[in-house]
Structures are given as structure tokens and as C-alpha cells.
């Protein structure tokens, strides 16, 4: 069903930040805000990740006229598809976890022999 492995947290948040076009510093700030400060992207790491994602064709830089002084990036159609697949995969993980843990917590007495 899937031809890409699970995304790293950094990649996931970079793609998520680029649903609307964004420059590098914006990605860093948005990632930190979305994860409530848990995921922090350092400049060197983000720079390397952006060029790797451009090479894969999941994101692309906006042309200089659109972007102004700072270089902005946006998601490609392929990147959007990858992101949607990842959200579906994460939902499956979370749903399964909650289903099993929920059952354990809810009627744990019956399940334990």
C-alpha cells in the first residue's frame, strides 16, 4: 500500500508547515508552535532537510518574484499526497493504540484473568 517509510518528526512538521508557503525561519517557528516547543529545528538541520525534500520533489522553492527577499518554499502535489498518507498512517497508529488501551482501561477487570 505504501511506498514511503514513516516520516521523521522533523520531515512531518516541515511538510505540515509548507501547506501554506513559508520561508525557513517561518518553518522553524511554526514547528515549534505546533509541537508546543517539543520539536525544534536547528538551522543547519533544516537547511539540509529542505534541499533533500526539494531533490525528492516533495517541496519546491517559490520563484524569486513571488518570494521577495527571503527564499520561500511550498508543498508540491506529491508532497501533499505523502503528507496525507502519513496523517492516515498516524491516525491508524493512534486509533489502534486507543482501541486497545481504551478496552484495557474500560473493562480491564473482565480481560484480566
Amino acid at each position: 500500500m505504501r511506498d514511503t517509510p514513516a516520516l521523521t518528526e522533523a520531515t512531518y512538521y516541515i511538510l505540515l508547515s509548507l501547506v501554506t508557503p513559508q520561508h525557513g525561519y517561518g518553518i522553524m517557528q511554526q514547528t515549534e508552535a505546533l509541537s508546543l516547543g517539543r520539536v525544534r529545528l536547528a538551522a543547519g538541520t533544516l537547511y539540509g532537510a529542505l534541499s533533500a525534500l526539494c531533490d525528492k520533489g516533495w517541496i519546491r522553492p517559490l520563484s524569486a518574484e513571488d518570494a521577495g527577499r527571503r527564499k520561500e518554499y511550498c508543498l508540491t502535489d506529491k508532497g501533499m499526497e505523502i503528507l496525507k498518507n502519513e496523517v492516515a498512517r498516524l491516525r491508524e497508529l493512534a486509533d489502534n493504540g486507543e482501541a486497545i488501551l481504551g478496552k484495557e482501561n474500560g473493562d480491564g477487570d473482565q480481560n484480566r484473568t
Partner: peptide
């Protein structure tokens, strides 16, 4: 805030 150039192990290894 905290300032680092590399925030994951892969980019530290690449460096």
C-alpha cells in the same frame, strides 16, 4: 531561545 546548528543525529553525523 536555545541556538543550535544541528537538531538531529543524522545531521550531526553528516557534519
Amino acid at each position: 531561545g536555545p541556538f543550535d546548528l544541528f537538531s538531529d543525529i543524522d545531521s550531526k553525523i553528516a557534519h
